[in-house]
């Protein structure tokens, strides 16, 4: 299983594209933040696919976005 590419995504429907990206992102997100990986992956999947492909190739970008998602979730929970 090689890296996911824009060409591979382009042959799939928009829903399938997010599914393919999510399947790749989830284990990486879980390795950074085990307890909220499903929620965080769902949040990241709302970003542009080009940005998601970049995150799959760049652990630093992914980590910084996961950290941001954790911050957003904590702020949201504090509001409730």
């Amino acid at each position: 299983q090689g890296p996911l590419t824009a060409t591979m995504l382009s042959s799939a429907s928009p829903e399938e594209q997010k599914e393919m990206l999510g399947e790749r992102l989830f284990p990486l997100v879980r390795s950074i933040q085990p307890t909220k990986a499903s929620k965080i992956t769902g949040m990241l999947l709302e970003l542009d696919n080009s940005e998601l492909l970049h995150m799959l190739e760049s652990p630093e970008s992914l980590r910084s976005m996961v950290d941001e998602a954790i911050g957003v979730l904590q702020a949201h929970q504090a509001e409730e």
């Binding site: 999510g22 284990p27 879980r30 992956t41 769902g42 949040m43 970003l47 957003v72 702020a75």
Partner: peptide, 21 residues
């Protein structure tokens, strides 16, 4: 800067990985 991330996003549950409880 306000984050573009949405805390109400739907959770992603992968098919190929067991879900931790």
């Amino acid at each position: 800067r306000k984050s573009t991330l949405n805390p109400n996003a739907k959770e992603f549950n992968p098919r190929s990985y067991a879900q931790p409880k």
